[in-house]
């Protein structure tokens, strides 16, 4: 045996391997290709296990029925209006936030099983795992949202704004989802195992309830109402109600008056905080 390169040559794959990207352009091309490979992994998951996707979509559908018909009769919309018209934007926002659970579980399970470490020990773009994950989650969110909007239309919800306003509202929802993907990735990397991730998830439900999604904050005790008004979810929901032309606008507070601005500012602030944290955590992965 001479050198190990010679001795392993018989089984070594052909030329393209072991080349490191030179220059920023090659680096970007690398990152895109690797991220797509990771995204593809999740798309294959959905094809191989469609039940996983179907169950995910059941949740928003059940919510529409549960909140729209079971609770709906007892709810009063501030300023008047149909409760289901008021409710659907809240459910849209809540579903976007709840997507965090999938992200977190997926990330934690990968770390727990050593798959994250395998990726980290490979010469792939360092951003690809998190970027690939978030891309797959965004595709999933679009499907969620389409189903939810269809359900809404069936139960009588309508978008009364222009096409542009409606698209802008959808964009705001996806922006919120995008922001919370990074929270999910970060918490997922921090959680020791799937159980811890499950506990984080349990906290999420009350967090979405303390918002304007189901009840107007003005009807809550003062401090709780303030907390609800400042919930990032509230800003998005208030903004899309405005864009969809649904009832339930209101509140005199600054935060309620600037819902559109905050529906952009909140998600951007969250991304600015959690994206670097996630990437750093992924690179170091101290577990």
């Amino acid at each position: 045996m001479t050198t190990s390169t010679a001795s392993t040559a018989s089984t070594a794959p052909a030329a393209p391997g072991r080349v490191l990207p030179s220059g920023p352009l090659a680096r970007v091309r690398w990152a895109v290709a690797d991220s797509w490979t990771v995204t593809r992994r999740y798309l294959i998951h959905w094809v191989r296990e469609p039940s996983y996707v179907v169950w995910g979509l059941m949740y928003p559908m059940v919510s529409v029925l549960l909140f729209g018909y079971v609770f709906g009769s007892a709810m009063v919309v501030p300023g008047g209006g149909d409760y289901r018209e008021f409710l659907l934007p809240g459910l849209f926002g809540m579903t976007m936030m709840f997507g965090i659970g999938n992200t977190m579980m997926g990330v934690t399970t990968d770390a727990d099983k050593g798959i994250t470490d395998r990726f980290r020990a490979m010469p792939m773009a360092r951003s690809a795992v998190v970027v690939g994950r978030s891309t797959a989650d965004m595709i999933n969110s679009v499907m969620d949202l389409v189903i939810l909007i269809l359900c809404g239309l069936i139960v009588g919800w309508r978008a009364h704004g222009t096409a542009g306003e409606t698209l802008a509202a959808v964009g705001l929802l996806l922006l919120l989802r995008f922001a919370f993907i990074w929270v999910g990735i970060y918490l997922g990397l921090r959680a020791k195992n799937a159980e811890t991730a499950g506990n984080f998830y349990a906290l999420l439900f009350p967090l979405t309830m303390i918002s304007n999604a189901f009840v107007a904050p003005e009807m809550m005790p003062g401090w709780l109402g303030a907390a609800a008004a400042w919930n990032p979810l509230s800003s998005t929901v208030a903004a899309i109600r405005e864009l969809f032309g649904n009832p339930g606008l209101g509140g005199d507070s600054w935060i309620a008056q600037n819902a559109l601005l905050m529906a952009v500012a909140w998600p951007l602030a969250i991304v600015a905080l959690f994206l670097p944290l996630s990437v750093r955590r992924y690179r170091r992965a101290r577990r």
Binding site: P13, T37, K113, A121
Partner: peptide
């Protein structure tokens, strides 16, 4: 590029097939 790591768990994707796993990792090795 020059190491292989096998840890205490089988670090492969459970849902993917054996071939899909290896293809995914192969793509990530460019």
């Amino acid at each position: 590029y020059r190491i292989g790591v096998t840890g205490q768990h089988a670090a492969v994707d459970e849902i993917l097939t054996g071939r899909q796993n290896l293809e995914m990792f192969g793509r990530l090795y460019h």
